[in-house]
Computed example of a mutant assay.
Amino acid sequence: MADGDNRRLAVLIDADNAQPAIVEGLLAEIAKYGTAHVKRIYGDWTLPNLGGWKDTLLRYSIQPIQQFRYTKGKNATDGAMMIDAMDLLYTGNYEGFCIVSSDSDFTRLASRLRESGTVVYGFGEKKTPEPFVAACDKFVFTELLREDDDGEPPQRKSAKELKRDTKLVHLLRLAVDAEADDGGWAGLGAVGSTIAKRAPEFDSRNYGYAKLSGLVKAIQLFDVDERLIGEGPHKALYIRDKKAVGT
């Protein structure tokens, strides 16, 4: 399987549960995880509510897939996406799937894809039901990706506000404890990987910090140590829970 930027990805977008304003940020985000070899968006393009997508699809070479609504109240788009996802999976050409929707109907699809050894990245609004979020390896809230006036980044939270977030504090401390050496120090990269496994929706940007390192420093619950890697100029960040060492 390919790693990192070499991962071949299939991007499947539910037009009924996504907005054109996220696309630029979405594709930039996806580029962090691999290369989008397939970009498809599903919906009933005969309906006027999807008309705003036209220019965006042309600009970013996203293939629209027509799916008529044969029965009122039934979402045929979901079924078409699921069938295509499984067809793409069986080709064996893709190491990862990006499912763009806030619909819980894709929970089982995400689980099934992961069972087959592929990585699943989910993208949806903060209203996305927790089961779908938890079924993905990584989940990014699309509010962070919008390019219009509604897409302003979250306000940076202060140390006091961060410490009040008991779920965040618990998550960080558990991850540090899981990766700590005998002296209590844990590499930030390893900590980040552990957090991602336990909380797919975690993203330091939701707290107003571009990187995990900024969030960890801001919360003021951890000692921070920058260490040189070998004899080169590169440094690695290590952190230690102040509570664990009584500082």
Rank of each mutant, 00 (worst) to 15 (best):
D16F: 03
I195W: 00
P48D: 08
D225T: 11
A236N: 13
L168T: 03
A244T: 13
G96P: 04
A80C: 04
L228R: 15
E231C: 13
N206E: 13
D84T: 07
R198S: 10
K54I: 09
K126F: 06
I65G: 09
F132E: 00
V216L: 10
A28L: 07
L172G: 01
D137Y: 05
A178G: 00
D14W: 01
V38S: 04
A28D: 10
D5M: 15
Y42E: 06
L50D: 09
A31I: 05
Q66I: 05
S101H: 03
A190S: 07
G25S: 03
P48F: 06
R173Y: 10
G122T: 10
L109H: 01
H170F: 07
W53G: 03
R240E: 14
G4Y: 14
K54V: 14
L9H: 06
I13P: 01
Q63N: 11
A244Y: 11
G117E: 07
T128W: 01
V11Q: 03
K242Y: 11
G117Q: 02
K74P: 02
D182P: 10
L50A: 10
T71W: 08
A28C: 04
N17Q: 12
S158R: 08
T166C: 09
T107Q: 10
V23R: 03
A85E: 06
E115F: 06
D149N: 15
I41D: 00
V119D: 12
N93A: 14
I41W: 02
T166S: 12
R108P: 07
D149H: 15
K126C: 09
K126L: 12
W185M: 01
